[in-house]
Design a protein around this nucleic acid. Structure first.
Length: 490
RNA sequence: CGGGGUGUAGCGCAGUUGGUAGCGUACCACGUUCGGGACGUGGGGGCCGGAAGUUCGAGUCUUCUCACCCCGACCA
């Protein structure tokens, strides 16, 4: 048992750390707060990227790339934006090193100080809006619908693999529109894209809503978000989409001539999801045996493991499963045959369980004699023996079933951990067990702050598309227009 | 940035009042095994995080540093 996982019950965050590293998703690096994403983890990210990118293109967006460095002066142009990010920016001050005078190593060459310091982008609004100014003159240039895949740096004090790292990978969409309404529709649409991706690809249920003022993006008028519930009862913000109003247009003087010849500021949105989704994926489905991946994002969907003693038996296994393998590949299913002679079947079973491969097929002399294969499901940890004839169709259906089962299990979990409360006392009790809590709130930042200080819970989102009824705030007793969703969050 | 902890073989750890480094696992070779992480035998691998000090002698004692982990404040 070389790779024993800490159980979730014993220590949830240790379980997460163990799992990410032992399943070969990522590891900590020599650089503080920065991770190395390993090939298996990166393969999952690539699958996420591929699907998201497709969805962005389908909604009319194109990709571009903007610089890693942002002149410091750009940053200060939007007041609340700079305030939000100033505390966590990496700054480039020099452009040259030299040999240390004492002969030991190298030092920064003080003569090579930059005239204007550069910020390593924590997000790209400023450099992008500075650029858009040159691209937009008339309503005919709008809407401008651009996305970029990039890395960003936020100098976090405490980091965790995928969930919060100093450098992370993400995509950031930045759009410009002629009207406020159009920009709002865009921001809502992208939240919908994220939500759909989370449900259908990650098999992860999410709540859709808007952020309270306290939680809003620095520089946004409205922040839309999707919020997921992790197995330990903590909420995780999985994606955000911002309606930026004309804040950045005004800060960077981006105007256009409308059809009537009037000069107007453009309306903006930005939206992003990051490698944090990897953390969400791990914490939504995985168990004490290891990773559990939804088939749609699994780099290997089916692994085939031979049971054999002799070379002849191995050869006959290969012949035996070759046809099935081809049929699966024809169906677009990714298959790996693990015929390594260096590990025993039992070892391989445990390994692929740890790595979350959705379906495992094993076959040995007994199966070959009886024209059967053994199929094991990662999500339920069940095994069955089926005839190899028509196994391809069976497996194809099974992958769909697993995808659905994971989503349904997650829905059940979330429902079991979602509560409505009517008093603050009840709230304080329920919050200790984790989960989402619906409660009436008077709409003021002060009340939210008080609740956060006393219970560590924040408003994860103000639900939309759920309908709401009036009530009274659980803390102040003042009027509330509808319940909002609280949780302790990552 | 506060509070706590840990740095010794790839990984996980032990190392007594200071005496020149060991266990498990992984790795390599050979043989027996192979339907849920096999076993035996033999082998390779360490500037004991770094620097300075005390000492005849430091993994062990002292000081200083650095890194990482956990818990808070901040955050996607």
């Amino acid at each position: 048992m070389a790779k024993e996982l800490t159980s979730r019950e014993e220590n949830y965050s240790q379980w997460y750390n163990d799992l990410v590293q032992k399943a070969d998703l990522a590891e900590t690096s020599a650089v503080r707060g920065c991770m190395v994403i390993k090939p298996y983890g990166y393969a999952i990210w690539e699958k996420m990227q591929a699907q998201l990118d497709k969805m962005f293109k389908e909604t009319g967006h194109v990709n571009a790339y903007f610089p890693l460095f942002i002149p410091k002066s750009f940053f200060s142009k939007e007041a609340s934006h700079v305030e939000g990010f100033a505390k966590e920016c990496a700054v480039v001050t020099h452009y040259r090193l030299k040999n240390s005078p004492d002969g030991k190593g190298i030092v920064v060459d003080e003569d090579a100080k930059l005239e204007e310091e550069l910020i390593v982008r924590p997000t790209s609004e400023t450099i992008i809006w500075n650029t858009y100014k040159n691209w937009i003159q008339s309503y005919r240039d709008l809407p401008l619908l651009i996305n970029q895949w990039a890395n960003v740096v936020r100098w976090e004090m405490r980091t965790r693999l995928f969930l919060r790292t100093a450098e992370f990978l993400w995509q950031e969409g930045h759009t410009a529109h002629a009207t406020k309404e159009e920009a709002i529709i865009e921001a809502e649409k992208m939240m919908g894209v994220y939500s759909q991706f989370a449900r259908e690809w990650m098999a992860m249920p999410v709540l859709e809503g808007v952020k309270s003022a306290n939680e809003r993006f620095a520089g946004a008028i409205e922040t839309y978000c999707i919020e997921a519930l992790m197995q330990d009862g903590k909420a995780l913000q999985a994606g955000t989409s911002h309606f930026l109003g004309q804040n950045f247009a005004k800060a960077f003087d981006v105007k256009f001539l409308d059809k009537t010849g009037k000069l107007e500021y453009v309306w903006a949105t930005s939206w992003g999801v990051s490698t944090r989704l990897m953390g969400a994926l791990v914490m939504t489905h995985s168990d004490d045996h290891g990773l559990v991946l939804p088939p749609k994002l699994a780099p290997i969907q089916v692994v085939m493991i031979p049971i054999y003693k002799t070379q002849e038996e191995l050869d006959s296994f290969k012949d035996y499963i070759n046809n099935l393998k081809s049929k699966l590949i024809e169906k677009g299913i990714s298959v790996k045959v693990d015929d390594r002679d260096t590990h025993k079947p039992g070892w391989k079973f445990a390994e692929y369980e740890l790595k979350g491969v959705p379906v495992r097929i094993a076959a040995g002399p007994r199966d070959i004699a009886g024209n059967t294969i053994e199929i094991a499901r990662r999500d339920t940890l069940t095994k069955e023996v089926i005839p190899i004839e028509n196994a391809a169709d069976y497996i194809s259906d099974l992958l769909d079933k697993i995808q659905i089962n994971l989503y349904e299990k997650s829905i059940v979990f979330r429902n079991q951990n979602t509560h409505h409360v009517n008093t603050y006392e009840e709230f304080k009790m329920k919050i200790e067990d984790g989960g989402f809590i619906y409660a009436h709130w008077d709409g003021t930042p002060e009340t939210e702050e008080k609740i956060k200080e006393e219970t560590k819970a924040t408003i994860r989102c103000i639900p939309i598309n759920e309908g709401s009824e009036e009530g009274t705030c659980i803390v102040t007793g003042k009027k509330s227009v509808g319940k909002v969703i609280f949780a302790r969050a990552y």
